[in-house]
Simulated scan of single mutants.
Amino acid sequence: MTNREFLVLTTTHDDEGRARELAAAAVRERLAACAQVYPVHSVYRWDGEVQEGAEWRVDLKTRAALAERLTAFLVERHSYRTPEVIGVPVVTGSAGYLDWVAAETA
Rank of each mutant, 00 (worst) to 15 (best):
E76Y: 10
A102I: 11
R28L: 07
L22D: 03
E29G: 11
K61A: 02
G48N: 13
A24C: 07
R45F: 06
L7K: 14
R4S: 13
G87V: 09
T92K: 10
K61N: 04
A65N: 09
A65K: 08
V58D: 06
T10E: 09
N3D: 15
R20F: 02
R4V: 13
R57G: 08
A24R: 06
R81F: 07
T82P: 02
R57H: 06
G93A: 12
P83G: 14
R18N: 09
L70D: 13
Q51C: 15
L22Q: 07
V58C: 02
V50H: 03
A64P: 05
L98I: 04
Y97E: 07
V8D: 04
A26G: 09
T105V: 07
T105Y: 03
V85D: 09
W56P: 01
A67P: 05
E68D: 15
D14V: 04
L74D: 09
V101C: 03
R81P: 10
F6H: 11
V40H: 01
L66N: 11
A65P: 03
A102N: 04
E76D: 12
H13P: 02
V91T: 14
A95K: 10
V90S: 08
R77E: 00
H78W: 00
V50R: 13
E52N: 15
L74S: 12
V90M: 08
A32Q: 09
R45V: 00
R20K: 11
Y80M: 05
R18K: 12
T11V: 14
L31G: 10
L60A: 00
V43P: 01
G17H: 06
E49Y: 11
E84P: 08
W46N: 00
V40G: 00
E55R: 00
S42A: 09
A64I: 10
E104Y: 06
V27Y: 01
A54F: 09
A103N: 09
V40T: 10
E76A: 15
A33C: 04
W46F: 07
V75M: 04
E5R: 06
T71D: 08
W100G: 05
D59I: 11
T11I: 12
A25I: 10
G48R: 14
A19M: 03
V37M: 01
A25C: 08
W100E: 01
D14P: 07
A32V: 13
D99I: 10
E5L: 10
R57L: 14
T12I: 11
V85A: 02
Q36A: 13
G87R: 14
A95S: 15
V85H: 05
D47Q: 15
E55V: 01
G17R: 06
A26I: 12
Y97G: 04
V85M: 08
A64V: 13
P89G: 02
G53A: 02
L9K: 11
T71C: 14
E29M: 01
E21Q: 11
R81C: 13
A54I: 15
W56C: 15
L31C: 06
R30E: 01
A95Q: 13
A65Y: 04
Q36C: 08
N3E: 13
R81Y: 10
G48V: 15
E16I: 03
R30I: 03
T2I: 12
P83K: 00
A106F: 06
A103T: 07
A64G: 02
S94I: 07
A102F: 04
R63I: 08
V40Y: 00
V50Y: 02
T11D: 01
A67V: 13
I86M: 14
Y97M: 02
L70E: 12
A32D: 08
Y80C: 05
Y38F: 12
Y38N: 03
